[in-house]
Structure formats: structure tokens, C-alpha cells
């Protein structure tokens, strides 16, 4: 099985680098974008299996990027997961309202992230297009696929 491709949209290079390191180590193929616009381009050229996207982005923000992704070429069953600030209830609500398939909280946990991503991917394939509830997916199987 070819590695699953994860598009990480994150403007902070350090965060991006960390997420890349963790996900690559977990065996994913990581493609990157540092802005919403770039994310749209990359997703168009190189369709991902999952999108991990920061909510706060320069230019068009995460919510708007999600809307355009959904209008564009992205397959319906590709989960788009928001990265929200820790303990910011309004961010979580915003993510849910905007139609994200789930969220992972910042700071991302090096140990939990691969499991969380895997849960979204399997949830997505199991439910065949129906997105898993974020709360169910997030935090499940903490060290799962590592």
C-alpha cells in the first residue's frame, strides 16, 4: 500500500517542520503549504488523503480555505482536520461550524498525532465518505500507529 498523503497547511515553519518530522516518521507522505492559497494549489496538483490545517493563516484563513477546497477538486471523503489552539472553546466551535471533520489541539502531541491522523483516515474510509465525529476520533489510540 502506497503511503497515505497528508497535506499540512501551516504558516509557522517550525510547527510545519515538527509535524512533518512526526508524520514522516509515522510513515506518511507529507506535502506542505504555508498559506491557504498555496494549500489550494497543492491540493489541486497533488490530491491528498487528508488535510491538516491551521485555523489561523495569513491571507485567507483556514475556514475560507476549507470552503474553497470543498468547492474545488477535493474528494468529498478526504477529511480536513483543523489545528486549534489549546483550550479555546470558540476555536473548536468555529471549526465544527465551518464543517471541519475534526480537530487536533495545539500544542500537537508528538506521540499522539500519528494515532489521531490514522483515526481520521480509517474513520473516513470505514464510514465511506461520512466524516467521523472529531471528538471520537481525536485522542483515540494514543500511540496507535507509531
Amino acid at each position: 500500500m502506497t503511503p497515505r498523503r497528508i497535506l499540512v497547511v501551516e504558516d509557522n515553519p517550525l510547527n510545519l517542520k515538527l509535524i512533518r518530522a512526526v508524520l514522516q516518521f509515522a510513515g506518511y507522505d507529507v506535502i506542505e503549504a504555508q498559506s491557504g492559497e498555496e494549500g489550494l494549489d497543492v491540493a489541486q496538483q497533488d490530491p491528498p488523503d487528508l488535510v491538516l490545517m491551521d485555523l489561523q493563516l495569513p491571507g485567507i484563513d483556514g475556514t475560507e480555505t476549507l470552503r474553497r477546497l470543498r468547492q474545488g477538486s477535493l474528494r468529498r471523503d478526504v477529511p480536513v482536520v483543523a489545528v486549534t489552539a489549546f483550550a479555546m472553546a470558540e476555536d473548536r466551535e468555529r471549526a465544527a461550524l465551518a464543517g471541519f471533520d475534526g480537530y487536533v489541539e495545539k500544542p500537537i502531541s508528538v506521540r499522539d498525532l500519528p494515532g489521531q491522523i490514522e483515526a481520521f483516515l480509517t474513520g473516513a474510509s470505514e464510514a465511506t465518505g461520512e466524516s467521523p465525529r472529531a471528538s471520537e476520533a481525536a485522542g483515540r489510540n494514543p500511540r496507535g500507529s507509531v
Binding site: N15, L18, A21, V22, P107, V110
Partner: peptide, 24 residues
Amino acid sequence: MSHELRTPLNAVIGFSEVLLDRMF
């Protein structure tokens, strides 16, 4: 401060963990 300090701090913690977990 919340944004600017947390982000690098998360990187400090995160990369430490990456190394501690012998990822590389």
C-alpha cells in the same frame, strides 16, 4: 504572548520528544 511564546515553546517540547522517541 499566547501565540508568539507558545509556538516556539511547542517546538522545543515537540522536537525534544521527537528525539526522545528515537524517531531519528
